[in-house]
Design a protein around this nucleic acid. Sequence first.
DNA 1: GTAAGTGGTTACCTTGAGTTAACTCTTCTC
DNA 2: GAGAAGAGTTAACTCAAGGTAACCACTTAC
Lengths: 122, 122
Amino acid sequence: MATITDKEKIREASCQEELVAMRDSIEILGGKWKLRIMRYLANRIAQKNHFKKILREIDGISAKMLAKELKDLEINLLITRTVQETKPIMVEYAITEYGKTVLPVTETLVQWGLNHRQRIKE
Amino acid sequence: MATITDKEKIREASCQEELVAMRDSIEILGGKWKLRIMRYLANRIAQKNHFKKILREIDGISAKMLAKELKDLEINLLITRTVQETKPIMVEYAITEYGKTVLPVTETLVQWGLNHRQRIKE
DNA sequence: GTAAGTGGTTACCTTGAGTTAACTCTTCTC
DNA sequence: GAGAAGAGTTAACTCAAGGTAACCACTTAC
């Protein structure tokens, strides 16, 4: 039992890599709002999503947090911000192609949340 | 355009439900450590995972945080805590069947993290 | 007897995530 | 001229997340 095979070493190393990868994901996508915003935008991909609309429709978020989280997401190239030169200026937010790669994450979280709620009921 | 069809209403409602489900998931699984601990335990399902071992192998976590997070996870029935009546007392932590339902979440996060790191390199 | 390993706890502290509320500035409408 | 709606910003604050370090009790090995 004291001997550790190479196979075990390799397996151990890949496990550590997984944990590092998760740390990275959590750093970028973690927090109370980022994934909820991403999901919101993904659900309304055909619509014009401007600031006040998102603010109204994501329950509980404040203007300050929304502004900050949108900035963070834009920096990480997950969403785009485009200013429309309309009379009352409008800013449109949209998910990028790269941003769509986080949708599997939101999907599993939605499914788990629904399932968990069901389980609590019983 | 002013009229909103019933179909649109239903779709809108289900989107809101998704966001609520995500909020629930993030409340329970959010933070810096919980999902990493779950992944760690899932990767070592055949082994005896005692406190000090987990503490050593999850990089960066403190004893205080580990104790707290393990308690939280146990309360939510995601892991079990069993005391082994050995000479130096040992406590074994293991993922539950229900705990395994969060593995799809960790898996998508691992994949996204690996993919993101690759993308940063280029 | 002392060091090291088991499983934590406790106290103290810092940081930053997040909230609330007020305010800017512009343009349109009443 | 007042109010509302667009897109935020700013200041002041709270509070929980998280880190650091010391400590406890027990047992075995040296």
